[in-house]
Write a protein that binds this DNA or RNA. Sequence first.
DNA 1: AGCTGCATGTAACCTGTTACATGATTAT
DNA 2: ATAATCATGTAACAGGTTACATGCAGCT
Lengths: 204, 204
Amino acid sequence: MNTLGYAILSSLGRNPCSGYQLVRYLEVLWPAKHSQIYPLLTKMEKNGLLEFEHIEQTSKPDKKIYSITEKGRETLEKWVTELPSDPIIRDEFFIKIYSIWLSNEENAKKLIQDRISKLEQTVALREENIAKIEQAHGKNGLEMTSKHFGGYILFNRRNRLDEEEISWCKWVLNLIEKAKLNNLLLGIMVGKLNIIIQDTTLIY
Amino acid sequence: MNTLGYAILSSLGRNPCSGYQLVRYLEVLWPAKHSQIYPLLTKMEKNGLLEFEHIEQTSKPDKKIYSITEKGRETLEKWVTELPSDPIIRDEFFIKIYSIWLSNEENAKKLIQDRISKLEQTVALREENIAKIEQAHGKNGLEMTSKHFGGYILFNRRNRLDEEEISWCKWVLNLIEKAKLNNLLLGIMVGKLNIIIQDTTLIY
DNA sequence: AGCTGCATGTAACCTGTTACATGATTAT
DNA sequence: ATAATCATGTAACAGGTTACATGCAGCT
């Protein structure tokens, strides 16, 4: 089975839900579209890792509530102890940053500024979620054996990293400003030098 | 064209190289295997974004040194100003962390400890690289218009984030320890309570 | 009247990985 | 001897995205 399968086991192991809801839950864990999730759920159910209950609804379409089986829980538990493969990060921002030397100052600043805006937005949203979890379970009441522990610490991780990145962005903006100032000063000095040269040329 | 194509333009725009070398250069920017890179290079060359020079070698296989064309540079410059799509992060570690509530303390600690080890290793390696760049170009001599600026600030970013993650890992280890202590204390208290109950039962 | 959310599914396509193929040189 | 590095390429497969398909309820 592939990693998406384990992500599904991990989510359903915490609480049963429909494929539709899984799409949302997996967003932070292992993003996948419904077109990838539905066929895999069917396959995993056939392999005995999951089971589902058909729920008929009147005002909404019917749904299947999936839950993890004993076999599924065992499979997940075994996998969790194996060492994880290296993370894969693909971010167009890196490539654009790598190429800013061919761009101008305005574009460069905009690229960084937009990044800050996005990060600040997501951090604010996540902070609300963290506060909700702490409110519901108590800041110190969250133990490793709690179902909510993993989610809680992962939210914390992401916010710490995002805040560090915001700080890095500001450092970069400063670097650009400082370089501009240096150039400006250099320009003035060159200007003065020219006057001196002109003066000296005039004198001598 | 896809993002890998822009990553290639970005790398070759800094300095020409062979497809073989590109695999290594792209590792930090947009990881790809040679089987994906070679056909794309051929395609991009046909589209006039790249050109190559055939270099014959005696002790090694012949190679093609690709470089960016004027059209390629223009294409890249235009793309850089468009806003980047959201980053994609896929990390098995997240799923394992999310599932540790079904695991025991030993496994949980090992998972975090292994993460710390990996991070510390890569941070150390990267620090060497940062030092090398600073040595070669001067800590303040690196301006936005320098070819090395992007790489320099990206290395810095990664190290900052990795160090923040190490700190987060230690915070999690502390949380686990603290919870254990609480449980231990609770255990002792329950024990004492039992004695009191036993005592009181004896007296009355 | 048109959009969003709920809910599941399939088909076509693009992206990325693993494996196959070749072959000389250099280091362990 | 055996593995790693240099160097390029293709084929098969797995993973992931976009688009097609349906239909009702509630909101603007």
